[in-house]
Computed example of a mutant assay.
Amino acid sequence: MLVRHRGREPRISPDATVAPGAVISGDVRVEAGARILHGAVITAEDGEIRVGAGTVILEHALVRGRAGHPALIGDGVMIGPHAHVNGATIGDGAFIATGAAVFPGAVVGAGAEVRVNGVVQVNTTLGPGAVVPIGWIAVGTPAQLFSPDRHDEIWAVQKALDFPGTVYGVDRSAGMAEIMRRQSAFYAAHDADEVVG
């Protein structure tokens, strides 16, 4: 399904494939040979998305573009089932495995791998060819890699990366009530969406 959102329509190459049940919304460009499979959601909320040539986005993956953090997916990239790429840049030939999450402001270099359930935190840069092991977390620029049981070490780096400011546009002191008030108002823009294809 193709959706006009915030006055912008997806632009899909005639040589790309969008499977039935996939949703592509807003300012999204899908290049030749790209394949968007069943249940994937590619949503340009208020920032653009580019899906490069020959890229494959598998079932139930989510790619989100945000203001100040477009989702720029290179050529020949694999984004696995249930993966989440939110306002990040993914270099050519990268592999984002099943269940992996890449957060706003992150950069995943060409040929890098974020393996099953791996995480690349906000404002983190993972170099070309680097590997985030299964379930591990990449944090910082350049990225440091941590196993999930090293929370205190992860937090020591992550705190300065400003997750609340980057993702929600609020100071760390903002409570969930304020964050959700803003999020509810932001996503109300979908009330005006129109199915265009």
Rank of each mutant, 00 (worst) to 15 (best):
A101M: 09
A130P: 06
G99W: 02
G140W: 11
I96P: 14
F95P: 04
G111R: 06
G127E: 15
V122K: 01
T98N: 15
V122Y: 07
F95V: 13
V119F: 12
G105N: 09
F95Q: 09
V119Q: 12
A106H: 03
A110N: 10
G109V: 08
V132E: 01
G118K: 05
G111L: 04
A94L: 11
A94R: 08
I137A: 01
N123Q: 10
I137D: 00
Q121N: 10
I96C: 11
T124H: 08
A106G: 07
A100Y: 00
V132N: 04
P128G: 07
I137Y: 02
I137L: 04
A143L: 08
G127Y: 07
V102S: 14
P142D: 07
G127C: 09
E113I: 11
W136N: 10
P128S: 10
G135P: 12
N123L: 04
A112I: 12
P104C: 00
P133I: 02
I137S: 02
L126T: 05
F95H: 12
V102Q: 15
Q121A: 15
R115D: 13
G109H: 08
T125P: 00
V132L: 00
V139W: 07
G135Q: 09
V131I: 15
A100Q: 01
G99L: 00
V120H: 06
A143N: 06
V120E: 02
E113W: 11
Q121Y: 15
G135I: 12
T98F: 15
N123P: 02
N117E: 12
I134M: 15
A101N: 02
G109N: 05
N123F: 06
T141H: 06
V116S: 06
V119H: 12
V114T: 04
V122L: 03
R115A: 15
A110F: 05
V120Q: 01
G127I: 07
T98W: 15
G118H: 00
V119S: 12
A97C: 13
G109L: 06
V139N: 08
A97N: 13
N123T: 06
G118P: 01
G105M: 09
G140S: 13
A143I: 05
V131E: 08
A106K: 01
V107M: 07
V102A: 13
V132M: 02
F95D: 12
N117A: 12
G109T: 03
A97H: 11
P133D: 03
P104K: 03
V131S: 05
V114I: 14
V139A: 14
E113V: 11
A112E: 10
G99N: 01
F95I: 14
E113L: 12
V131A: 08
T124Q: 09
P104F: 05
V132S: 04
A130S: 14
G105E: 09
P133M: 05
A101P: 03
G140L: 13
V132C: 05
W136G: 06
V139G: 09
V131L: 14
G99V: 00
F103K: 04
A112R: 07
E113Y: 08
F103H: 13
G129L: 07
A138N: 12
V131F: 04
Q144S: 14
F95S: 10
A130R: 13
T124F: 09
V108G: 10
T125E: 13
